[in-house]
């Protein structure tokens, strides 16, 4: 038993952290809220150059051949900066899914949108390829042949689309149990990736709040010296610290092909969702009205957390999966 990342994994995380600090500051996220694509462009290109977009593809398919244990740390970093990009859908869910089913996936893959999580598809308008489960058939559809109707997410950088397409559109990639199993695995990767992003987001909100309450003075001292705020933030730290190991453990289980890996993913996602929501709630309260303003960056992270907490399954539905395996058995 050894629960620690190796140096290569930490180095990759640090490299991604550095790259995103440069290419995805809060202004980038803010720009994505109102630009035509909802995306960062510069950060995506830089991540593609670094190999991150194709990281989960095998080396002989032009990828980095990384497993969940490697990419989970990368995803945490994308959460930390609220990266407005389909990194979950493309790098972690779509590309490996299509590759595993024998499709030719370019490396780096162009962006991929899916209809595997909810009824709306994230960044479908800028994706080259849309992956849809249609009955028991998994299809690859060219989004330009589908009718996309823009939805409006509270996180304006999350460009969601309702998708209508002609019966039998696109090409069938897999059917029956093969499609079902591949999609189940892809959804688990999506849930784990979202969990990792939520950890990064929660840490970001905590760090930003610690900084703010240390400098904001009322009653002649920093508001962060008030115990009521200290205790809220300590509770956030507890929530994060006791969600994180479940995320890493689920990543290990996915890589190891553990028969219970889906349950482990659900443990991770439920705890990470709850931790990030707690972080958002307390971060806002500790900021006071400034945090309630559109101008303050906090809401960029908070709204992303609200969305991701319910993407790829919310805390409750994942606990339901755990209950089915552990409690009902």
């Amino acid at each position: 038993m050894r629960f620690a990342f190796d140096d290569d994994q930490i180095d990759l995380r640090d490299a991604v952290r550095g790259l995103l600090a440069d290419t995805c500051p809060p202004e980038t996220v803010r720009t994505a809220w109102s630009n035509s694509t909802g995306r960062s462009d510069a950060a995506w290109g830089a991540l593609a150059d670094m190999g991150v977009v194709s990281m989960a593809l095998p080396v002989d398919a032009g990828g980095l051949g990384l497993g969940a244990l490697d990419w989970v740390l990368v995803l945490e970093e994308t959460g930390r900066v609220a990266l407005p990009e389909p990194v979950v859908e493309t790098a972690v869910v779509g590309a490996p899914l299509l590759h595993a089913l024998g499709c030719d996936v370019p490396a780096p893959p162009a962006s991929i949108a899916t209809l595997l999580d909810s009824g709306a598809s994230l960044y479908a308008d800028t994706a080259e390829c849309l992956v849809v489960l249609d009955g028991d058939a998994l299809r690859m559809v060219d989004p330009s042949t589908a009718r996309l109707t823009a939805e409006v997410s509270v996180d304006r950088s999350r460009r969601l689309f309702a998708v209508e397409m002609a019966a039998g559109a696109g090409t069938v990639v897999a059917t029956g149990p093969q499609a079902r199993d591949a999609v189940a695995a892809a959804r688990d990767r999506g849930a784990l990736a979202a969990a990792a992003q939520l950890i990064g987001l929660a840490e970001r909100m905590l760090a930003t709040t610690v900084e703010y309450v240390s400098v904001r003075h009322q009653f002649g001292k920093p508001v962060g010296a008030q115990q009521a705020l200290k205790h809220k933030l300590a509770d956030v730290a507890v929530a994060i610290e006791f969600a994180r190991p479940l995320v890493y453990r689920a990543a290990w289980s996915l890589d190891a092909g553990d028969p219970d890996s889906a349950v482990h993913v659900s443990m991770a996602k439920s705890q990470a969702s709850d931790a990030a929501e707690l972080a958002a709630r307390h971060a806002l309260q500790c900021h006071g009205a400034i945090g309630y303003s559109y101008e303050c960056d906090l809401h960029l992270f908070m709204k992303r957390a609200w969305c991701l907490a319910r993407s790829w399954g919310d805390a409750r539905s994942h606990r339901d999966r755990v209950a089915a395996a552990v409690v009902d058995a």
Binding site: F3, E241, F242, A243, R244, P245, L246, Y248, R249, M267, S270, Q271, R316, R319, D320, V322, A323, V326, V327, D328
Partner: peptide, 18 residues
């Protein structure tokens, strides 16, 4: 209460892996 039991299990696991 089924949800509460699942949560307890998850948190005990969280402590274990932590």
């Amino acid at each position: 209460l089924r949800d509460a039991v699942a949560r307890a299990w998850i948190q005990a696991e969280a402590y274990r892996w932590y």
